[in-house]
Design a protein around this nucleic acid. Structure first.
Ligand SMILES: [Zn+2]
Ligand SMILES: [Zn+2]
Ligand SMILES: [Zn+2]
Ligand SMILES: [Zn+2]
Lengths: 133, 133
DNA sequence: TTTTTAAGTGCAACAATGTTGCAATAAATA
DNA sequence: TATTTATTGCAACATTGTTGCACTTAAAAA
């Protein structure tokens, strides 16, 4: 996790390491508000810039759901500035409201007449492993 | 289109009719900035409240793509406050950048062990009918 | 390791976006 | 038409995100 910053060719500062460590402690996507809560003290602007560069460099990716706060989760290693290479869906649990990145082996494909589909992004809602009892 | 407001049980005001007419003139999703451009003069707050109630009542739905302005498109008749009943995907063209609501007859389904999936939302990117030549 | 260079941080100030209370106004209902 | 109810516009505010610039820190070179 630590060498991720070096791998992505951005300076390894204490603040960035700390933010990255927070993401690492969760195995689901988290909103900025949680990052802020976990940081004892921080500069609002620096945090914005950190999130921005993490997104640009493919360190994290953003999950947006209409009417809700954006969530962020660490990317796969292969992601970069130009493209994200995820083979997962974003699953939001209706009960615990946690958003998970769920790996999926056979990604569905759809065809639309006259359209050329290059990429699919899937968001699912329902009950997660813990809540589906 | 006009009686849509009555059907959804909200007051039929000149402003609301005008905003609804703008959505009706497009056959794709549009951002707030286009609505604003089409309105000769308008009150910013009233527009926000109009969009908000349209969303709540299931008159329009919101399409959010990470890092981009939200887009809005008219809903199917069956949509309501509690649930949207769309059988379509959101397709964003890489070239013209327009976002379309594309009807799809066989909606894909996915299964995840231990998860209970209740709803899927799909966003696709590629080339639209016009740009795919 | 020290020096040089490049990048990151924090402050101030600003811009954009969204919200709320309240009085005036308009729409729906009786 | 009169009454009730909902909508609108204003002012003021809250939140979110951005930019320029000086200062500090990290990385690279010597
Ligand atoms: Zn859950
Ligand atoms: Zn993800
Ligand atoms: Zn196109
Ligand atoms: Zn749609």
């Amino acid at each position: 996790m630590t060498n991720l910053l070096k791998n992505k060719k951005i300076s390894e500062t204490p603040f960035r390491k700390e933010v990255l460590a927070i993401f690492g402690r969760y195995n689901n996507a988290i909103p900025l508000s949680i990052v802020e809560k976990e940081l004892k003290e921080y500069n609002r602007i620096t945090l914005y810039r950190t999130i921005k560069i993490f997104l640009e460099k493919g360190i994290i990716h953003e999950i947006t759901i209409s009417g809700e706060e954006s969530n962020y989760a660490v990317c796969q290693e292969e992601c970069n500035t130009d493209a994200h290479h995820h083979q997962h869906i974003h699953f939001k649990c209706k009960k615990c409201e946690i958003i998970y990145c769920v790996e999926i082996n056979k990604f569905p494909s759809i065809a639309l007449p006259n359209y050329k589909i290059e990429q699919l992004e899937i968001q699912a809602t329902g009950l997660c492993q813990s809540c589906n009892v």
